[in-house]
Amino acid sequence: MNNVSQDHFVTADGRSIGGALMEMQNITLRFGGVVALEDISFDILEGEVRAIIGPNGAGKSSMLNVISGFYVPQEGQVLYRGSLRPAMKPFQVATQGIARTFQNIALFEGMSVLDNVMTGRITKIKSGIFSQMIWKGRAEREEIENREVVEKIIDFLEIQAIRKTPVSRLPYGLKKRVELARALAAEPSLLLLDEPMAGMNVEEKEDMSRFILDVNSEFGTTIALIEHDMSVVMDLSDRVVVMDYGKKIGDGTPDEIRNNQEVIDAYLGVSHD
């Protein structure tokens, strides 16, 4: 299953993977004279776990920022669900069903865990400011409906005990989990995870891996993740994109990547004599 989008197939563990959800075509991103991404093309299939790996400074986070609409590439185009995505602001991208987490946690420190996760539902709110002033009828009903969804996610990620705790009091590993909860609250069709396991110990990594796989198999959420821990990447992902110095140097299943000479060179270095 190399790069070409197949129509429909079922993986060994019984998840069904569909056509391309998102296609990046010849993306080039420059910051002044620096070329962060150069002519990169790849696709993300519906229902798969797609990993983006590469050494430091390879442009992985820039790639994720292009997908989430934070950076607008100078060249190339982004196709979402088969149609060209026009340049839009990040908050508009959120309404399209794309949610993400950040490399260095970007939670709202002054709010409780529950409020943080509830902010994930903001795109679903229809009631206006005037109906919320009165807090009767639609505003209250919506609040309760969203709370029910959020509580399911809180259950799913096993953070019930801390739901009323201010985020600023939580340890690092839990913060990462709350951030995942906030992204999941939006019920995204595409979930972008920027180093979800950075700085975690083995147990926390195992928990997080389990959550990622569960999200993928239970909710059918497509996941694109950046991660440095190779054993995690190889275990979790269906397909891997490898980047180095802003270029794509490999794309394929974990097994293919493991045996790709260019990837091995990029990671281990190669002598130039």
Binding site: P90, V93, A99, F108, M118, T119, E142
Partner: peptide, 21 residues
Amino acid sequence: GSVGRKWMAIRDMDIAAEIIG
């Protein structure tokens, strides 16, 4: 309610708030 959460999200981290919608 959600209006207040939007305000607090902007206060605490405006970039993340924008990504969330």
